[in-house]
Every structure is written in structure tokens, then in C-alpha cells.
């Protein structure tokens, strides 16, 4: 495309332009050329390192969103509140603190409510009382010797 702003130059103008063009500007110094060369040919290692770190971080984030990790996190979410709830509410100075601790432990393990476990334990202890053998019915060594002729 022709330059519309360039009027046809006169011979005088062309001669002047040629004279000006014949005056060559001073070149860049060798030091400057070496500096440009080293800056342009330098390997951008630091930028590569940043890229590597960013790539690793991205991979870690993607891996965390995989189903297997999601499942593990969900499992933790189910068990953690129960454990923390009963371990934090255990009475320390009550008389039956051992029993409370047992309830909490069972509850934690079986993921059941402490009320229902309490009922189970009560039932078990009542059964144990019923099954308890009367001491008077047990023959003693002395009695045996008397009874024996």
C-alpha cells in the first residue's frame, strides 16, 4: 500500500535525504551488545521452578478431589463427632466414672447412642444379679468335715 502522506519528493529533497542517510549513527558499544546477548540467551530457570511448584500444587488439589480421598474424608466425618462428643463430656469426679467411660467407649465403637447402651448395661447387670449364686448354699470345707462320718 502506498503511503498517502508521502508527497512525491523533489530531487533536492532526495539529495538531502541521501546526504543525511550517508551520516551513519554510532553503533552500540560491544559491552551493550554482550549485555543484550547474555540477557536474551539466559535460561529462565527461576520461572521454570515456579511453574513446577504450581504444577505439583495443582496435582495435589486434583488428587484430593478423587473419590478415594473423598471416601476417606467422609469416614472421618462420621466417626469424629461421636468420639469428640463423649470424650469431652465424660464426668471426672462422679462415683461411676468408670461406668460412664465404658458407655462412652462402647458408644464410640458401635456408633450407638449412650442411652441405649446404658439400658443394655443395666439389663446385663440385673441378669448378673439374678444369676448370682447364694453363698450359704455353697458347701464349706468345715461343713464337709462335719457331715462326713
Amino acid at each position: 500500500m502506498n503511503d498517502p502522506h508521502q508527497a512525491p519528493p523533489s530531487s533536492e529533497q532526495l539529495a538531502l535525504e541521501a546526504q543525511l542517510r550517508s551520516m551513519l549513527p554510532i553503533d552500540l558499544s560491544t559491552d551493550s551488545q554482550i549485555s543484550i546477548k547474555s540477557r536474551l540467551e539466559r535460561r529462565p530457570t527461576s520461572f521454570h521452578h515456579v511453574q513446577c511448584v504450581a504444577a505439583i500444587a495443582a496435582c495435589a488439589l486434583i488428587a484430593m478431589s478423587l473419590p478415594v480421598f473423598q471416601h476417606a474424608r467422609n469416614q472421618q466425618r462420621v466417626t469424629r463427632p461421636i468420639r469428640s462428643r463423649y470424650s469431652s463430656t465424660l464426668p471426672i469426679d462422679v462415683a461411676n466414672d468408670e461406668k460412664q467411660f465404658a458407655i462412652a467407649t462402647y458408644s464410640n465403637a458401635l456408633a450407638q447412642s449412650p442411652a441405649s447402651l446404658n439400658a443394655i448395661l443395666e439389663r446385663q447387670s440385673r441378669k448378673a444379679e439374678c444369676d448370682e449364686v447364694d453363698d450359704s448354699q455353697i458347701p464349706r470345707t468345715g461343713d464337709l468335715s462335719i457331715a462326713t462320718p
Binding site: P25, I26, D27, L28, S32, Q33, I36
Partner: peptide, 18 residues
């Protein structure tokens, strides 16, 4: 690429300096 930027610098460096 080196020759490429060398050419550019040789051609335009003095004018830029001026």
C-alpha cells in the same frame, strides 16, 4: 534465533541509540 535477534540489533541498534 540468535542470528535473528543479532540481525535486528545490527539493523536498528544504532538508530535506537541515535
Amino acid at each position: 534465533k540468535t542470528a535473528d535477534w543479532n540481525t535486528w540489533l545490527a539493523e536498528h541498534g544504532p538508530t535506537m541509540l541515535l
